[in-house]
Nucleic acid binder design. Structure first.
Lengths: 339, 339
DNA sequence: TATTAGCACTCCATCGAAACGAGTGCTAAC
DNA sequence: GTTAGCACTCGTTTCGATGGAGTGCTAATA
């Protein structure tokens, strides 16, 4: 167990390093208000903290830097609430006052504000479309051979896809088909759609329409190809300002990561409650070695939810980010549920 | 007018510099096959070419580097066709064999292949949605107060938006409204939609439905907020490999540019035919000082068109890119028009 | 026993000088 | 008109010297 003094010193080191990005020396610590012991004492404590794995040195005669374990301890036990300036609070509020019911714009805007206030990168994951339930099918003919299939969900989401019609597929066939689809599939969540289509609906359709098979196949394709949730960014390039990312290789890996939606999905664990913090290697991703990710989920009503993530260097201002994130989470949840 | 020898030297310098990224010296040139004069002669010619503004030095005793004017002359007069390897050709072809009629996937894939083959950044601009014509309106109710409005265009594009319904708006009102919209607006191009809505349709609707005004306003919003054309990327981070972008500031400016869709639109001049090359400052954009952009338009039938742009350093392999771009342009135009 | 002053030591960062190499411009010879 | 030769310039690399920040250890102190 750490002594009070060790706790205090660890806290000061993290706080200092977060703002300065420079290794913290004993003299520097001794000058901080609230510190009553001499540099020599602090050096002894630091040596102990290093032995315990909370601190590291960049080289033999450098000051100390928090280790991952040090950050972990800090966020678990030493995180104190952070004062957010009034203007910043009202900046966040302004997003929600704007327009209501326009989810996409709201989320997009939130990502921008968050990245601006944190100076890190904000990633917002829209609600998982796969959970939405079918409200209505529609097939609109375009030419002799093509039509566009439309699925509207109960949340107002619209999926669509151009279909190639089989030879001799008549308008009345389309009508029949749409009726059957709407009869059988309303209320089915999108992620079950392809199963229902193949297992139940296909055989029924076949009885009425000759060439139903190819079209059903296309519909199955659509429902499989849907992404989990849409991703929105704010401050994608903010990482370039962080001194630890003056290395082209790291930047490249990070940028590539952010362009790969599939990889990004793994950042989120939307089933958890509250705020999660993953530090450095806890992300299990080489590109994120020097990054921490702070995530939380927000609710959009109807058991739907989205998630917010802030990606910053491990030397991130955890206090501030956690506070901002919590404000944004509750604000978003409110704005999106009440309408 | 330049002598043949000067032309030859300019060509060699550009070709060499494009591949090596190093200033080209007289000795190096003299060793190239086809060059029969001594380094001293070449030095004299280079001094003349520099005086004429085609070459530059990075410092007093360095080799020569093409100036913007030099590149301009090169692409205008010295560009020779480039051999593309068979495997690369079939790599391009494979995109078009894949699936037909699925425009979005096709364009996305093309962007990736192009960026891979060029090692630069590919930007594809999808066809301008504003030109599409309305095929069908649809309003699907969600709750008492909300519904989703859907516009299908003759190209199979679907726009949609959640509407807040006025108090006491009944299902039969919706039906009436949809009928009038479909009566009056089919065939109208999207970019004229808001005008028609306000000028013609609004007054008719008002006669039949009390609270038509707010809904029409929402529809107007939708048709105004549509973007010009969707933008697809390939190889966004490829620029990081170019030695001229080892500068964080430049990278930042470029990345920011690419995240701003609005700015990117200005890269394209889709009304022009053939291939356009803009070199360095010709782009009128600080972030693109050291970049060249090669663009061309592809047709998607029905007077619709999209555009391709390759963004690379001014020290770009113009020969290769121009050839690849032309192949991709014709391939895309074919694939998208014939179906 | 806990704390602190003092001191030797380590390592990084910065600077300037020297050596080197690539390339030029100019002159004079071919 | 072309080229060999040479002095010169400038960037790059290397090396050692210097200074500063910070440590660990020891011995003195409260």
């Amino acid at each position: 167990m750490l002594t009070n003094r060790q706790l205090q010193i660890l806290q000061v080191i993290v706080d200092d390093f977060v703002t300065s990005a420079q290794p913290v020396g004993s003299r520097q610590i001794s000058k901080r208000e609230g510190i009553t012991y001499s540099p020599a004492t602090i050096r002894n404590e630091m040596a102990d903290l290093e032995e315990l794995g909370f601190l590291e040195k960049t080289h033999t005669s450098s000051g100390r830097v928090p280790s991952e374990k040090g950050y972990r301890f800090y966020v678990d036990h030493l995180l104190q609430p952070h004062m957010i300036r009034d203007e910043e609070i009202s900046q966040i509020q302004s997003v929600f006052n704007h327009r209501i019911g326009e989810m996409e714009g709201l989320i997009r805007e939130s990502a921008n504000i968050l990245s601006e206030l944190t100076t890190y990168t904000a990633v917002l994951l829209g609600p998982d479309v796969q959970q939405h339930k079918v409200r209505k099918f529609q097939i609109v003919p375009l030419t002799e051979q093509t039509a566009v299939a439309i699925v509207v969900t109960d949340n107002g989401h619209v999926e669509n896809r151009v279909l190639t019609l089989p030879q001799g597929f008549s308008p009345s066939d389309i009508e029949k088909m749409v009726n059957i689809l709407n009869d059988r599939l309303i209320g089915v969540p999108l992620h079950e759609l392809h199963i229902k289509l193949e297992a139940e609906v296909l055989s029924i359709l076949k009885q009425h329409i000759a060439a139903a098979e190819t079209i059903v196949q296309s519909l199955v394709d659509v429902s499989i190809s849907q992404k989990e949730g849409k991703i929105y960014y704010g401050g994608k390039t903010n990482m370039l300002n962080q001194p630890e990312f003056h290395d082209l290789n790291k930047i490249r890996m990070l940028m590539d990561l952010m362009d790969k939606e599939s990889q990004l999905q793994s950042l989120f664990q939307p089933n958890q409650v509250g705020i999660q913090i993953r530090i450095g290697s806890e992300n299990n991703n080489l590109a994120m070695e020097n990054c921490s990710v702070i995530t939380t989920a927000f609710s959009t009503g109807d058991e739907q939810h989205g998630a917010i993530a802030i990606i910053g260097p491990t030397r991130m201002d955890y206090r501030r980010v956690v506070t901002l994130l919590e404000m944004m989470r509750s604000g978003l949840s409110n704005a999106l549920t009440k309408h």
